[in-house]
């Protein structure tokens, strides 16, 4: 339903001392908070993504075997099994009940993301996020406009499809083409031509449709959105009263539709961004010069 909140977008076009209308998000924040604080969460996320990837690569590259396997399934220090619950579910739909190792591994991961937010996987772990963030940066930098937009529902359609095809064909069909697991795997086991898919995703996001892959199409993202629906850790527009409508958070957010209900909701509504689509990436916290946002848990009341 289109609600009253939709009018706020027209309201913010009022000619009040607007910084840059969200065209260069973060400029104001850098001025007031300094570069480091205005990029804190971004840097932490890159650190997290790189560290996790390094743990996987350290084995084959330097013989330091802390983590074996890849993000589909791994073994840490020879004891801790971790399995991707999305890939695991596909095997279930394909008619295979996995061994206890994979089941417990998938459960551990599931519980973890259930607590910290499903799409924390997307923004803090998945290396594709670096590619799509870069594509979005290019898009903003060169003011690329393209009218093609996919439905954000599309990913749920794809998610359902992956399970349906798996159960009909009896094979993990999506894993035959899944660019996310493919690139994660080939980064660890040796890159063939899959870097072409990195290029493809970059081109799609930068020149064809904004945030197309992670925000509209990726069924893995959709899966983790569902997991994160009721997760504990949420971003909170706690200081929404001091919002000056600069639009920077909307411009930087990979899922901008999630901000509006929290930031521009009625007085009595919760300022917590409850949508499972929020990736808890913390960029809104970074780019906000007014410190409107913070990371908190979901039970915060007004």
């Amino acid at each position: 339903m289109v609600s009253a909140t939709s009018h706020t977008s027209s309201a913010i076009k009022s000619p009040v001392k607007k910084s840059n209308g969200g065209k260069y998000p973060g400029q104001e924040a850098i001025k007031t908070k300094g570069w480091l604080r205005a990029n804190k969460w971004l840097l932490l996320r890159r650190l997290s993504q790189m560290s996790i990837l390094s743990l996987f690569i350290a084995g084959p590259m330097f013989g330091v075997w802390i983590v074996k396997g890849n993000m589909s399934s791994s073994l840490t220090l020879g004891v801790l099994p971790l399995s991707d619950p999305f890939v695991f579910l596909q095997t279930l739909f394909a008619g295979h009940l996995a061994e206890a190792t994979a089941i417990s591994g998938a459960l551990i991961v599931l519980v973890f993301y259930f607590l910290v937010g499903g799409r924390v996987y997307c923004s803090w772990v998945c290396p594709i996020n670096i590619v799509t963030d870069a594509a979005d940066w290019v898009r903003r930098k060169f003011k690329i406009k393209s009218s093609l937009t996919f439905s954000r529902m599309g990913r749920y359609g794809l998610l359902a499809s992956t399970f349906i095809i798996a159960s009909v064909t009896g094979v993990l069909a999506w894993e035959l083409i899944n660019p996310v697991t493919m690139i994660q795997r080939e980064l660890v086991y040796g890159m063939g031509v899959s870097w072409l898919l990195v290029v493809a995703i970059f081109v799609l996001d930068a020149f064809i449709s904004r945030r197309a892959w992670c925000g509209h199409l990726c069924p893995m993202g959709a899966f983790y959105s569902l997991i994160g629906k009721y997760s504990l850790i949420k971003t909170n527009a706690v200081n929404r009263k001091s919002c000056d409508d600069c639009m920077d958070c909307f411009a930087i957010c990979p899922e901008p539709q999630v901000i509006k209900p929290a930031l521009k909701g009625s007085e009595n509504s919760s300022p917590v961004i409850v949508s499972g689509n929020c990736t808890n990436c913390g960029r809104c916290i970074d780019v906000c010069a007014k410190d409107v946002f913070e990371t908190s848990h979901r039970f915060v009341k007004t």
Binding site: N70, S72, S74, S83, V87, A94, H96, A102, L172, T181
Partner: peptide
């Protein structure tokens, strides 16, 4: 239907 391509 069973292999998750983890490479273990």
């Amino acid at each position: 239907s069973a292999c998750v391509r983890c490479g273990l």
